[in-house]
């Protein structure tokens, strides 16, 4: 098969489009089979049958599902995600999602970047000193944090902080007097508040990335070319940098992309526990408030974000690894 970058991109893009369409359809169907009539949820109690019929007609609930789906797609591409039922009554969903998305991006983006950096470094350290005490202790710690549910770790962290440092902010993304601060004050306040959830997220993800890096590097170290490098008389530091790491990074890139979904899930737990006003907390509030438009939009955003992360990882992998099959 010819190794053609353009056809590869084309294929991947078509797959991406199909999957996104599948997700939109899934999203559409799922919220139609949810318990409860959407009309019933918004229509005020005691409305006459005529009013209900008029509203159903206005929202297009009487039309066949296919034409409803087309309307749904058109609305989404026009940036209209409907209005919220209960989280903020009759407020457009885009206005609610926007700030939440920004908050989550700060948390998840910083968290993932830090966790990848630290995790790869720690995993490399453990793999390079395989079998020593350092490796044993480090691997033990990685395993414990990898197996510990994120919400449990977040809770323990929260309870420790509220017990020993009661002044430390444990809720929200900013303090009460946030709006009166100047720019640097705002940034500082946000950083101060984000530190605890960020710490919980990073520690949990470091473990996963370190385990992946360690096992990938150990796999690479058994390859023939490593022996050749030693036989050539290369220094072990050079072997690590120029031979082992570039090859070990390939599976790491794939798994990191797959992990974006995992990180997002972990961030939901952390946002709920620390009351951090992000996308996860919003999903949570929407679930309990039965706010279907908000839930639908949040779910769609989370899924599409993961999809796009995977898509970019595929493209990156194609550039990195000449052996990738088309």
């Amino acid at each position: 098969m010819a190794r053609d970058f353009r056809s590869y991109i084309f294929r991947k893009t078509v797959y991406l489009a199909i999957t996104i369409l599948l997700i939109l359809a899934f999203n559409f169907i799922l919220f139609r089979i949810m318990p409860g009539d959407p009309a019933r949820a918004v229509i005020p109690k005691g409305a006459s049958d005529e009013v209900i019929a008029m509203l159903r007609d206005k929202w297009g609930l009487d039309e066949p599902y296919l034409s409803q789906f087309v309307t749904y797609l058109v609305n989404i591409f026009q940036g209209d995600l409907g209005t919220s039922f209960t989280v903020r009554v009759n407020y457009p969903v885009t206005g609610i999602i926007g700030p939440a998305l920004a908050n989550t991006l700060v948390l998840v983006g910083t968290g993932t970047a830090l966790a990848v950096l630290a995790g790869v470094m720690l995993g490399r350290l453990a793999a390079w000193r395989r079998g020593t005490v350092t490796d044993r202790v480090a691997s033990g710690f990685f395993l414990i944090f990898y197996c510990m549910p994120t919400f449990l770790f977040a809770l323990i962290l929260l309870s420790l902080f509220t017990k020993y440092i009661p002044d430390w902010p444990s809720r929200g993304a900013y303090g009460e007097d946030y709006r009166y601060l100047d720019l640097w004050g705002k940034i500082g306040d946000r950083a101060y508040h984000t530190l605890l959830p960020l710490g919980a997220l990073v520690v949990e993800e470091i473990a996963a990335f370190a385990i992946i890096t360690r096992s990938a590097l150990i796999d690479v170290m058994t390859e023939e070319y490593m022996v050749t490098a030693v036989a050539k008389g290369m220094r072990s530091k050079d072997i690590l940098h120029s031979h082992a790491m570039p090859n070990a990074m390939l599976p790491v890139v794939t798994v990191v992309a797959m992990y974006v979904g995992w990180v997002l899930s972990g961030s939901i737990m952390i946002e709920v526990i620390f009351s951090y006003p992000g996308l996860g907390k919003l999903t949570w509030d929407a679930v309990w408030g039965e706010d279907y438009p908000v839930l639908q939009a949040a779910f769609m955003l989370e899924t599409v974000a993961v999809l796009i992360a995977n898509y970019s990882a595929d493209l990156l992998l194609f550039k990195l690894d000449p052996r990738v099959k088309i």
């Binding site: 797959y15 999957t19 997700i23 899934f26 318990p35 997002l264 737990m269 779910f299 989370e302 899924t303």
Partner: peptide, 23 residues
């Protein structure tokens, strides 16, 4: 494609939504 879809979708929101639908 179906597998990709389930593989890629963040499991937690999906689980929350499913648990909501199924009771």
């Amino acid at each position: 494609r179906l597998t990709d879809f389930f593989l890629v979708i963040p499991w937690l929101p999906l689980m929350i939504v499913f648990a909501m639908v199924m009771g």
